[in-house]
């Protein structure tokens, strides 16, 4: 057991957990931030994607030891003051979610992409988003929503 000060969504949380605990489970079971999802536990599906200092990373294989003092943004922390980001708005408007389970990870990944490339091509999107499964295969609308949100400010940028 070790003590960690996790910087999540702009607040610092002191937690006492085993060093090897993946960030995913600290978020879900300790901090109650269940928007970050468990899918595979091996970094294959992307459901557990969070932003670490603005970079999209998979939290299921990221131990607390490695998180250190990095700023973690989860899907709960994307909208500020109740205002959805352009990406979140596009997701709602274009009705991207089917079951919705992967969409938090998709949105965070898209947010990181748009911060790096405000006007991505389809090829940019495919390359940046191919680490995130959608079991419902909502890919057609994911592409549309990223284009719709392109060029607009992203909260995490």
């Amino acid at each position: 057991m070790s003590s960690f000060n996790l910087n999540v969504n702009g607040a610092v949380h002191a937690v006492d957990l085993d060093d090897n605990t993946p960030l995913l489970w600290a978020l879900r079971d300790t901090l109650g931030l269940v928007g970050t999802k468990y899918g595979c536990g091996i970094g294959e599906c992307g459901a557990c994607t969070v932003l670490l200092d603005g970079e999209a990373v998979k939290s299921c294989g990221l131990s607390l030891k490695k998180v250190g003092s990095a700023k973690v943004t989860t899907i709960e922390g994307l909208a500020r003051g109740g205002k959805l980001t352009a990406v979140q708005q596009a997701w709602c408007k274009l009705d991207v979610p089917q079951c919705g389970y992967c969409q938090g990870g998709q949105i965070l990944c898209a947010t990181a992409l748009l911060a790096a490339k405000p006007r991505p091509t389809d090829a940019d999107i495919d390359s940046a988003m191919s680490g995130n499964f959608c079991r419902c295969a909502s890919y057609t609308r994911i592409r549309q929503a990223i284009h719709a949100a392109a060029g607009q400010p992203t909260a995490a940028s």
Partner: peptide
């Protein structure tokens, strides 16, 4: 449920 999904509720 779209708004809840995109905000991780």
């Amino acid at each position: 449920d779209n708004e809840k999904i995109v905000t991780g509720q």
